[in-house]
């Protein structure tokens, strides 16, 4: 019924063929999937792009066996603490980072294969009441954690073999940081979004908190996904899980906002709203380059071109189940779409 309801929207300028199904991974264990991601993995046959699927108590690595066939090659069994998310680590190979916890992240772990005896290895990177974590370039992790009295924003540096090489702290803002994004093209700049809807900017090298800028009250609890600097302005891609529908902007899922870090003034550059007539709201999403994908409460996945503000593709709920996860692989040419039963579909975009 839901699929039929969506058909008129597909005919109204949104092309389903923008997403071509390449292959499907079907997990035989019917465990509940919590996250999916892509990772480079080097084996005897060379380096290849593999898929990582995470259930609450196990994380599996899948490698391509044929163009349309994938095989599960390794499964790490975790302990009693459930897996919450996969933490992508850019520019790394043979390394999977995961966050575990109950209501919030309590542990960050690395999963590997031992080079000595090919056994599956797990190592603990960090514990605490962790609110947000992001994998950065050059094998670093940034995390925000909270005690009753204070917040700590910490960088952890990892060796090539995944050992923790220590770290340093960044000056925390007063309010809790909920998400981070590296500023592309600026090696030492990092931004974060906070509980009171501010954007904070750090110098990663010195740990200085450089600026705090308010996003505005219309879009509470904004989450930053991507940031880049151009012509003296800081552009930030935000999602708005709690935004209210308005006449001028419809039901916004993503927004590109330009900030002048010198004056802390900002202006909205582009809205990416749900296509008119499409039921549901933004649930969760992922951004890569100028492409954004989101799971909607209706069980559909929508894809936008952030520069045009256009919804470019829509995957209606699969007849066998609703979509629950949407992640870009290492580039925005490949979308991983996951269902709660562990089925993952790879789409070429």
């Amino acid at each position: 019924g839901v699929a039929e309801e969506l058909t008129p929207v597909l005919l109204d300028g949104v092309r389903e063929e923008s997403l071509q199904l390449v292959s499907k991974l079907k997990d035989s264990c019917s465990c509940c999937a919590v996250d999916v991601g892509a990772v480079w993995w080097e084996a005897a046959g060379g380096r290849e792009l593999c898929v990582v699927t995470a259930g609450e108590s196990a994380v599996s690595l899948w490698r391509p066996l044929a163009p349309d066939r994938w095989g599960k090659v390794h499964t790490w069994q975790l302990g009693e603490i459930p897996v919450i998310q996969i933490v992508p680590l850019p520019d790394t190979c043979n390394l999977v980072c995961i966050a575990l916890g109950d209501l919030e992240i309590g542990e960050i772990r690395l999963l590997q294969i031992s080079s000595e005896n090919d056994s599956l290895k797990q190592s603990l990177v960090k514990t605490g009441n962790i609110k947000a974590v992001l994998g950065l370039k050059d094998r670093r992790l940034v995390s925000s954690s909270r005690t009753v009295h204070e917040q700590q924003v910490e960088i952890t540096s990892l060796s090539e073999t995944g050992r923790s090489k220590g770290g340093w702290t960044l000056m925390p803002p007063e309010e809790t940081v909920l998400a981070f994004a590296e500023v592309e093209g600026m090696g030492d700049a990092l931004v974060g979004t906070t509980t009171v809807n501010s954007i904070v900017v750090w110098n990663l090298k010195t740990g200085q908190l450089l600026k705090k800028m308010h996003v505005g009250y219309s879009y509470p609890a904004s989450i930053c996904h991507r940031a880049y600097s151009d012509s003296g302005l800081l552009f930030v891609v935000l999602s708005h899980p709690h935004a209210k529908e308005s006449e001028s902007c419809g039901n916004p899922a993503f927004r590109v906002v330009a900030f002048n870090p010198r004056t802390a003034r900002s202006t909205g550059v582009m809205f990416s709203s749900l296509p008119p007539g499409l039921a549901g709201r933004y649930l969760e999403g992922d951004v890569k380059d100028a492409s954004a994908a989101a799971v909607l409460t209706s069980g559909a996945i929508a894809v936008w071109d952030l520069l045009l503000g256009h919804c470019t593709a829509l995957l209606p709920p699969d007849p066998t189940g609703s979509w629950a996860l949407a992640r870009w692989a290492t580039s925005s040419t490949c979308l991983l779409a996951g269902q709660r039963d562990g089925t993952v579909c790879l789409y070429r975009y």
């Binding site: 030492d188 900017v201 908190l209 450089l210 003296g232 330009a258 004056t263 202006t267």
Partner: peptide, 23 residues
């Protein structure tokens, strides 16, 4: 967006803010 909306823009904002912010 125009400079009047956002105030004076600097191409070196990151270096300038790093020099001004407390260490």
């Amino acid at each position: 967006c125009s400079e009047s909306d956002l105030g004076p823009i600097s191409l070196n904002w990151f270096e300038e803010l790093s020099a001004e912010a407390p260490p």
